[in-house]
Design a binder for these strands. Structure first.
Length: 469
DNA sequence: CAGGATGATTCCCA
DNA sequence: TGGGAATCATCCTG
């Protein structure tokens, strides 16, 4: 039989066996007695216990009076110390073992992650480091600075919320702990509460609150993960390119249909061009790898379903032809303005370059519109030019499938172009294709070029991918 | 909301 | 290493 059971039995049986020494503690001699009167002491303790037992059955006023009486009782300190000791030995010893909890591994993980993400810990290093990591992971360099700052802003927001909540939590924890401690201290006057018990209660409160803290950390981590996945998972942030960007890429693709393999330089140029025309928001700039992706997708999808893309191909071919025609007209005007009779040495070089490009355009136009033979022009390296003459099945292109608007443009320009036909002789070269493209030219062209698609070469503003051999 | 379009990723190959 | 092919995930449109 343990101490607790014994004392309970004692309370029930109105008697306290071995009352003089409990747990090694001697009760002080009862007031008004000489300390040898055993029956008197028994009577005293019995009285106290009886009063305690009956106190709940009484009215509040009576209970208060009783309580006061008990508090003033000479035996009270001794009884409390005994009861405290018994409590220590029983209940507390059982729970005592649980108090020294090892650090929760999950909490440690959460702490580490928050630290790594820059949510917890010093503000400067963590946040920017995480943002930099985010930028690096997303594959972008300088082009995603907008997203980068957006990510940082959101992370800062999370950080602020986290710290605010953490502060609130700590404040609440402290307040509650103080409250409970005060309550227990107050109660310790009427019931046996040892300082150790108060300490233990504080520990329990802290553990309970730390579970709330864990929830806070957990949701913060989740928020960071979501943020990261939003910003780092490229698939998530997929945005369609702007119409202008798609047009630029399509124009290049269809104007190089025989060999749609832009070189690195061409890709860079295209990326730059697209960026210039579409930089109007988050993710609107296009990187070289995006250009590569685009061409990769385009080639495969075009190849898979040529019929579907035929209309688009014609459209862009016509468009390019119009551009070329405009360029040709401009070139003619330019060449006339800079004729030898009005020399302009400062711009001569530029003009010559421009004229050459324009001549290429005119050449293309002439080739596409007015001939049906691939042998009409001396352009041995031009896959596009070759394609523009020759259909897949060997039928020569007659020009009838070009849009009427193009035809009219061409008609009005025919005269002008014929005047500058001399430039054509200078065009024994074409530097549009990457080495890969040349290598793959036959395969791609044979498999993919529809009979009705013309493929005029690029105009003055177009992108060159010069790796010709 | 279903289905097509489209940008991105992954795996494999030359 | 770049490209083809398959696939995923998201966007867009009717």
């Amino acid at each position: 039989m343990d101490d607790q059971a014994r004392i309970m039995q004692s309370i029930g049986g109105v008697s306290l066996a071995g009352h003089s020494v409990q747990g090694g503690m001697a009760l002080p001699p009862p007031h008004g007695h000489d300390g040898t009167d055993g029956d008197g002491r028994k009577q005293d303790i019995g009285d106290i216990l009886h009063q305690i037992m009956t106190i709940t059955d009484q009215s509040l006023d009576e209970a208060q009076a009783k309580k006061h009486g008990l508090n003033c009782h000479r035996m009270k300190p001794a009884l409390f110390s005994v009861l405290c000791e018994i409590k220590e030995k029983t209940g507390l010893s059982i729970r005592g073992a649980q108090e020294e909890d090892p650090p929760d591994p999950q909490l440690m993980r959460l702490d580490n992650m928050l630290l790594a993400e820059g949510v917890a810990g010093p503000e400067k290093g963590g946040g920017s480091a995480a943002a930099a990591a985010a930028a690096a992971a997303s594959g972008g360099a300088a082009d995603n600075s907008i997203e980068h700052s957006d990510y940082r802003a959101k992370l800062t927001q999370i950080r602020q919320i986290y710290h605010t909540e953490l502060e609130k939590y700590e404040q609440a924890c402290n307040e509650f702990t103080t409250h409970v401690m005060n309550l227990l201290r107050e109660q310790s006057r009427t019931r046996p509460i040892s300082p150790k018990e108060i300490e233990r209660m504080v520990g329990i409160i802290h553990r309970k609150f730390s579970s709330i803290q864990m929830q806070l950390k957990q949701s913060t981590c989740e928020a960071v993960m979501i943020l990261r996945s939003r910003f780092l998972d490229a698939r998530r942030k997929r945005r369609n390119f702007s119409k202008q960007a798609t047009e630029i890429l399509n124009e290049y693709f269809y104007s190089h249909l025989s060999n749609p393999y832009p070189s690195e330089e061409a890709k860079e140029e295209l990326a730059k061009k697209c960026s210039i025309t579409v930089s109007q928001g988050v993710g609107s700039t296009i990187t070289v790898s995006q250009v590569s992706n685009w061409f990769g997708n385009k080639r495969i999808r075009y190849k898979k379903n040529i019929g579907k893309f035929q209309e688009e191909a014609n459209l862009y071919a016509a468009k390019t032809a119009v551009n070329a025609a405009h360029a040709a007209a401009a070139a003619v005007q330019n060449s006339q303005a800079n004729s030898p009779t009005t020399p302009n040495s400062g711009f001569q070089m530029k003009d010559e370059e421009f004229q050459l490009d324009s001549a290429e355009s005119k050449n293309t136009l002439l080739t596409n519109m007015f001939t049906g033979s691939s042998g009409s022009f001396n352009l041995p390296n031009s896959g596009d030019m070759f394609l523009s003459m020759q259909s897949l099945n060997g039928d020569s292109y007659q020009g009838a499938q070009v849009g009427a608007n193009v035809q009219s443009q061409v008609d009005t320009l025919r005269h002008v172009i014929s005047q500058t036909a001399g430039y054509n002789d200078a065009l024994g070269r074409n530097t549009m294709y990457s080495s890969h493209g040349l290598h793959a030219n036959g395969g791609w062209q044979d498999a993919t070029t529809p009979s009705s698609v013309i493929s005029p070469t690029e105009g003055p503003g177009s992108v060159h991918s010069d790796t010709s051999n």
